[in-house]
Design a protein around this nucleic acid. Structure first.
Lengths: 391, 391
DNA sequence: ATAAGTTAGTTGATTCAACTAACGAACTAT
DNA sequence: ATAGTTCGTTAGTTGAATCAACTAACTTAT
């Protein structure tokens, strides 16, 4: 709904800022070329962005071979504010503090049982400590985003398995105490946002996460698709085997019972008749080329492939990023899946392994903070990939 | 990407026109209230729309109980142009000619074998006859849209089962011959557009069609979601039963082998050991309360429910419209499905039977013609429901 | 019947943002 | 030195939305 004059400026400002964020250094002239706005208009917008501390000039660039005045290079004033991300699970809380380009300031993981009584205090004290210890910067803390393993709808927790976090008004309590914008989002959705922020080539992608549960995050036209009730991509409880294994959700044969790390460990235990075996034991058994284990992994791969194909059949994305410990530990699986998909009608869909691993949702949360602060809802801008992957 | 001054006017013109299309009669003052534009701006835009023949004044309306000048009611100049829609199947071609509000001018169905050699001629001659016989109107024929049973990507047929239409450049040949805008689109997608055009309450919906094949059309935020290669919603070849019935697509256990009308007829034939039985025989057997038939239908319903749930699990729409002869003939099935879904985590999703039946894709094609002519890609405006349902 | 109040739509002045064209600054190649 | 090129700014123009004040046309109370 762009209908006023000022909204046009706002919109164009975001376009200009996106270009500055996306490229490490860029000139006014280049921006004008890239987005088709007049040089004079770009100059005016950049002037405002510099005044508002979003952008800084970093000196002259190289002139072209044909001569001419050297450009003045611009870059995001990444230290103008900081973003804080949390990932809260039943058994741990991790926190990532970054500058505006995603460069890591601090990353902490604390193993402890999280519940409705200690979560607000844990998060708020970290934020307050950060606020106290950080030097002055123009925007301060731009926002807090919390990754939740569960169903989130309109910034409200609908359901968390494994713990009771769904019983409190997490956002409300934190916003009251901290007086900062607080967002919560489903972990798979955040992982998808992170993948999208690191992939400038594709604007429609699926991020398929399989850990204790299975979920997909969906990015369509550069935007996160949450669904009507925040449940889009909750594919863990779509049915893979009608009349199959019973699932705590009440149904039978849910995908989660076949493709999660939990599921493959359970099968491994059944196979070896030993309830104490862990995922590490499974990996060890695989490396010893135990034939029963290999067969089990093959069956897992087939089920995983069907699960993947079914998601692709629904969304028809350009690329699918898979985030799973099982694939990380058993590298052949990715090419098995690529082969499987190449035999279907979805041979053109790219299947890739996530490069972000367990920190994906934290970086996704950073993206949410940025999007919210800049009032954009698409991932046209990216985090600084080198900085993030280095950290 | 709205960044010029004229685009703001263009955008606001579409907003105003959408309001005029959506409501049978509306005044300038009401439009100003509805979309928040200044009265003066609305007046200027409406003046242009009237000049360009999109809109006509239809006289004064009632003044309110508190008095005041009576409004001048506006309405879409529906007879300013006509839309032509085709539905081409291997054994029939149907054509729908309408005014701009969807009001039927003519609807014809011809049973004949369609193929790559006669399709262009069949379509072109109908269009040429229409052009010759119609009186003068400002826009003339605004466009041709053809519903295709198969995969369509970027206005190109990728694959048609049952016949060889995928071997010609249908759009190119018709555009050359007719010198009119020609569009093609997958049947399930068009059905979804039609459902969306008739449903002003929900902006995210899935239309689930099960006939010879199974497919879904997806509307997200009022826009058709086609996917990267036009295959979004091609759920007929997602897997319902791993290692299940072999499918011509090369895979096993595809949804289409369980939920299509073809599939239930095949099962009925197997059940009765009679290859000649038809869908009508099945319906008759159901009305006779044949217990084997009832059990078979129950199994069909369960499979259908799982298929439906899996699509919902991916997209999380507000409402699902089902278009299937089986449901039309066996009315209890819809409540069975509603019950089934109400026991899952998707209890809030509305499950509805399509009110459009076999003409759905033709009306969807009309929507495409309108969207294309008006340069919009959302279904913020609707067809005139009473007129369409009456026809 | 008249006056007061209300709503619809138009007009003219103003504001805002993008555009154009021209220019100075700063460079390269000859 | 000079011509050509590119970057960024400046001054003036244009298009579109806004606001305030207006006319038009109606209802209701007196």
């Amino acid at each position: 709904m762009f209908n006023t004059k000022s909204s046009i400026r706002e919109n164009n400002s975001i376009l200009v800022l996106s270009e500055i964020i996306n490229r490490p250094e860029v000139s006014r002239a280049m921006i004008s070329e890239l987005i088709g706005l007049n040089k004079a208009t770009v100059s005016a917008i950049v002037k405002q962005l510099i005044e508002d501390k979003y952008v800084i000039e970093i000196g002259p660039g190289e002139s072209t071979s044909t001569g001419g005045r050297r450009p003045i290079l611009l870059t995001l004033n990444k230290k103008a504010g900081i973003s804080i991300s949390f990932d809260v699970r039943h058994d741990r809380i991790s926190c990532l503090i970054t500058y505006l380009d995603g460069e890591k300031i601090e990353h902490t993981i604390e193993e402890k049982n999280m519940n409705k009584d200690n979560t607000v205090e844990s998060i708020a004290s970290i934020v307050e400590d950060t606020r106290d210890s950080m030097g002055h910067c123009p925007f301060g803390i731009i926002g807090i985003t919390i990754s939740i393993h569960g169903i989130v709808d309109h910034n409200k927790i609908e359901f968390t398995p494994y713990f009771d976090l769904d019983q409190i008004d997490l956002v409300g309590e934190l916003e009251t105490r901290l007086d900062l914008p607080v967002h919560i989002e489903n972990e798979a959705n955040l992982t998808a946002l992170a993948e999208a922020a690191f992939d400038n080539e594709h604007c429609s992608l699926v991020s398929f996460s399989a850990h204790t549960g299975v979920g997909a995050g969906i990015i369509l036209d550069g935007k996160l698709h949450r669904g009507h009730k925040g449940r889009s991509g909750e594919v863990g409880h779509t049915v893979l085997y009608p009349n199959g294994i019973s699932c705590p959700c009440g149904n039978q044969g849910c995908l989660e019972q076949y493709c999660s790390t939990t599921a493959i460990v359970r099968r491994f235990r059944e196979l070896k008749h030993n309830d104490q075996l862990t995922f590490q034991d499974l990996v060890a058994s695989y490396h010893l080329k135990d034939s029963d284990t290999l067969n089990m992994i093959l069956q897992f791969a087939k089920d995983f492939g069907i699960g993947l194909m079914n998601v692709i059949g629904n969304f028809d994305p350009e690329v699918v990023y898979i985030n799973s410990e099982v694939l990380d530990e058993i590298p052949e699986l990715i090419s098995f899946l690529q082969n499987y998909l190449s035999m279907t009608i979805y041979k053109n869909v790219l299947i890739r392994q996530s490069r972000l691993g367990k920190k994906a949702s934290l970086y996704g949360a950073t993206v949410v903070n940025l999007q919210s602060y800049l009032h954009v809802d698409n991932v046209e801008f990216s985090l600084n990939m080198e900085k993030v992957l280095a950290g």
